[in-house]
């Protein structure tokens, strides 16, 4: 009986230590590595539920959108061509996906609205080459790193007259939540 109690105490002690360790590290892996190799440029949606990334498809860097809740790859209407893609960026619920793509011999910035199926191209003069970008959580602003005459700079664009805000869940806007999944 004494032996049983002593063993039980040891088990409780070990479990307690393990619990403490997990609190100290404060890091918990949500997902393992995805199966595809060479994944780059991660961008989480504001909600943390969707992830845009760049993967090699037949040697062409292509944007891919994943639902982290079930690992599903979500369809993109306008972004299955115009590779190579780079620097994806998502709005709050993943309604808008902005990415740098190739049209002819020009790098262009494309914003796909996954709700309406429309795409918008940012008006950037040919001599300014977009390098990186970031969409504001509600989609109303876009920051673009531009290379021009050997120098990098960041330009902000106001998209609010073209784009309906993608608000967090529970806000008054209803249309932005439809048709995303």
């Amino acid at each position: 009986m004494n032996l049983l109690i002593s063993n039980l105490k040891k088990v409780v002690y070990v479990l307690g230590c393990l619990g403490l360790c997990s609190c100290i590290s404060r890091v918990d892996r949500l997902e393992g590595q995805f199966a595809v190799s060479n994944q780059q440029d991660p961008s989480l949606s504001g909600s943390g539920e969707k992830l845009a990334l760049i993967v090699d498809i037949n040697g062409r860097p292509s944007v891919q959108l994943r639902d982290l809740r079930n690992g599903e790859i979500l369809p993109l209407r306008h972004l299955s061509r115009n590779q190579p893609h780079s620097s994806p960026s998502l709005s709050w619920n993943g309604r808008y996906l902005a990415v740098i793509a190739q049209r002819g011999n020009q790098r262009v910035v494309i914003v796909e609205d996954r709700l309406t199926g429309r795409s918008h191209q940012l008006p950037i003069p040919r001599e300014r080459i977009p390098v990186r970008l970031s969409l504001a959580p509600n989609g109303s602003q876009l920051a673009v790193q531009i290379a021009e005459k050997g120098k990098w700079r960041v330009q902000l664009f106001d998209l609010s007259s073209k784009i309906e805000p993608d608000q967090p869940f529970g806000s008054s806007l209803s249309t932005s939540l439809k048709g995303i999944n």
């Binding site: 609190c23 404060r26 890091v27 918990d28 892996r29 949500l30 997902e31 393992g32 590595q33 995805f34 190799s37 060479n38 994944q39 780059q40 440029d41 991660p42 961008s43 989480l44 949606s45 504001g46 909600s47 943390g48 992830l51 990334l53 982290l68 709050w92 959580p137 967090p168």
Partner: peptide, 25 residues
């Protein structure tokens, strides 16, 4: 993510790039 509690990191392991999603407690 917007809450600052979920992060996605591009990591090099064995010469290949992978992405790991981490939740901060």
């Amino acid at each position: 993510d917007s809450s600052g509690r979920v992060l996605a990191v591009q990591i090099s392991r064995g010469g290949k790039w992978n992405i790991q999603v981490i939740r901060l407690q």
